[in-house]
Every structure is written in structure tokens, then in C-alpha cells.
């Protein structure tokens, strides 16, 4: 139960949630709620793993995963943007579809054995910083470092660039964007695709770095849904999403570590002597998601913050008030 190890592992596993959450933030900022994150992540994890087995190159696996998940996200885009169907039901359907397809195509992958994984390394100078060095910069996967760079870049992109302004506008008031001659459909298709690619990257992060392998539905074990919850907690802000994701990652590691020692805080460890008490620990991430949602929703109500105004509404040109 070394807090540094827990936080280090938290950052590593939290990177999965980070990519998925930021992807969903981008899609929702454009006005499209995509509940298919879990399905897209499974597609990504399966594609990454099988591509790496076939080619021996994990980077190809990552690219294939992003492309495959991005591709399947376009089903959701077509149904909700062009066909104007309900985004909630379509997103659910995408999760079923993604889960089903990845189970069918991933058949037998669980016995595939080991593959070459993405590299882990330490950053020379930064890893010497006390406390932060070992947590953030020692023996982390290359994807974790990509996450460090990616989060502030996304934040800057959304808040301080012209395309970012277009993104925010299309989620808040699409008809204004349309009147400027910018394609609402085009932007939304694009950001759903980006969201899908990031969900695929999150899946690849699991199967090629954090918990290597393919374990059918248990590969993601509901992390896609936790990501959707984190978006609300993060109030559609990538930096808040980063802290939320790492906190969740640390919680997952803490749960594992609590069950190990025979004595904890000077007492006999109940989770060691009665392993089935561990099921209460297993509930924690999910219970925590609900608590985080309550906090996020309360804060949003108090500050009158909220989801992008057009989130969940199809854009129909010429309709009033959309």
C-alpha cells in the first residue's frame, strides 16, 4: 500500500479514461451525445490486439484501433445527424453493436498469448523530481506521456482557436454556425469521428499497455460508461477530465492493494481474511461514478453551467429555435 505506487498506477490506468473522456467531450461539444463509448472502446481494444498479433507492430495496432473505432462511430453519426434519430437510443445500439462485433471478431484472441507491447520508459531529468517524478515520469507507457501533452492541447484548441470556437458554437447554437456558411453536419460528423478515434485509442491503451490482452467484455468492464459519467463531472472541460480520470485510475489500484496485506492500519485486514468482502471494494468505482455525477450535477445547477445547449438535438435547417 505505497501511495506513490498507487498514484503511479492510477495515472497509467487513468489514461484509458482520459482518452475516452476527452473524445466524448469533443463529440458532445459539437452537440452529439454518443453513448457508444463502451462499444467503440471494445472495438478499439480488439482491433489493436489482433492487428498487433498479425503485424507484430503495436503502433500499427494503435492506428488500426483508432481507425476502426472512428469508422463505427460514423454509424452513430449517420443515424443521429443525417437521419435525425434519438441520440440516446442510437448510442446504446452502438454499444451493443460494438460489443457484439468485437466478441465475434475477437473470438479466440484471448488464447493468442503475448504480443509486443507499447514501450514503457522514464523521462531522464523529470523523473528525478521528488514525489511527482516517480508518479508521473517513471516507467510509464508512452501513451501516458501522450496523454500529458494531449490534454492541455485539447483545452487550448477548444478555448483559444478559431476551429475550437466553431466547435463550441455548433454545440451551442448550430443555426448561427450555419448562417456563417460553415457546415453543421460536416463539423458534427468530424467530431463524432474524432471522439470514436479517441475511444479506440482508449481501447488500445488497455489491450496494448495497461492490461495487455483480450478478455472479451471484461477488457473494458464498463470503463466506457464511467467515461460518459466523467464528462458530466468534468463539465466538458479536458483539464477537469484529466484529474477525474487519474483519480479513478488510482481508486482501481487502491482496491487491488487493500486486499493484499494481512494487517491494515494496525488491524487485521478484513478483506484479506474474508476475501468475499472484496466485492464491496469492487462496487466502489461504480458507486463513485454516481457520487461524482451527483457532485457534477449539483455544481452545474448552482453555477448555471451546463451541457452544450444543442446537445442531443438534431439540426434541421429552417426549424425555429434550434
Amino acid at each position: 500500500m505505497d501511495p506513490i505506487i498507487i498514484l503511479q498506477a492510477g495515472v497509467a490506468t487513468g489514461t484509458v479514461l482520459l482518452f475516452a473522456t476527452i473524445g466524448e467531450i469533443l463529440a458532445e461539444r459539437s452537440g452529439v451525445l454518443n453513448l457508444g463509448v463502451e462499444g467503440m472502446m471494445l472495438i478499439g481494444a480488439m482491433t489493436a490486439f489482433s492487428t498487433t498479433i498479425a503485424t507484430g507492430n503495436p503502433w500499427l495496432g494503435v492506428l488500426a484501433a483508432m481507425f476502426a473505432a472512428g469508422l463505427i462511430s460514423q454509424i452513430h453519426a449517420f443515424i443521429t445527424i443525417t437521419l435525425q434519430a434519438d441520440q440516446v437510443v442510437s448510442g446504446l445500439a452502438l454499444t451493443f453493436l460494438g460489443t457484439g462485433i468485437s466478441l465475434v471478431l475477437g473470438e479466440g484472441l484471448s488464447k493468442a498469448g503475448t504480443v509486443s507491447l507499447l514501450p514503457n520508459f522514464s523521462i531522464p531529468v523529470l523523473s528525478q523530481i521528488p514525489i511527482l517524478g516517480p508518479i508521473l515520469f517513471t516507467k510509464q507507457s508512452v501513451l501516458v506521456y501522450i496523454g500529458y501533452l494531449f490534454t492541455p492541447l485539447t483545452w487550448y484548441f477548444i478555448n483559444h482557436t478559431r476551429p475550437g470556437l466553431n466547435l463550441r458554437s455548433v454545440g451551442e447554437y448550430p443555426s448561427a454556425v450555419d448562417s456563417l456558411g460553415i457546415s453543421v453536419f460536416g463539423l458534427r460528423y468530424f467530431y463524432v469521428f474524432v471522439g470514436g478515434m479517441l475511444a479506440g485509442l482508449a481501447g488500445a491503451t488497455i489491450s496494448l499497455a495497461v492490461a495487455p490482452g483480450w478478455f472479451s467484455e471484461l477488457t473494458t468492464a464498463g470503463q466506457g460508461w464511467i467515461a460518459v459519467g466523467l464528462v458530466i463531472f468534468a463539465q466538458w472541460d479536458p483539464v477537469r477530465a484529466m484529474f477525474g480520470s487519474y483519480a479513478f485510475g488510482a481508486l482501481r489500484r487502491l482496491i487491488l492493494d487493500v486486499q493484499g496485506p494481512t494487517i491494515i492500519f494496525g488491524l487485521n485486514n478484513p478483506f484479506y481474511y474474508n476475501p468475499y468482502w472484496g466485492f464491496f471494494l469492487q462496487m466502489l468505482p461504480y458507486a463513485f461514478t454516481v457520487i461524482v455525477l451527483v457532485i457534477g450535477s449539483r455544481e452545474a445547477m448552482r453555477k448555471r453551467l451546463g451541457a452544450p445547449a444543442a446537445l442531443g438535438n438534431p439540426y434541421i435547417r429552417g426549424e425555429r429555435g434550434k
Binding site: I75, I79, A85, V89, S90, F96, G98, G100, V104
Partner: peptide, 16 residues
Amino acid sequence: GVPKMIQGIILVSLIA
């Protein structure tokens, strides 16, 4: 995984 996949495809086609 076939039944699960077919369920998913049916739902997607229905919504569409």
C-alpha cells in the same frame, strides 16, 4: 458473440 452482434445490428437498423 453472434447473438449479441445480431441484436446490436437489429437495434441499429430499427433506429435507422
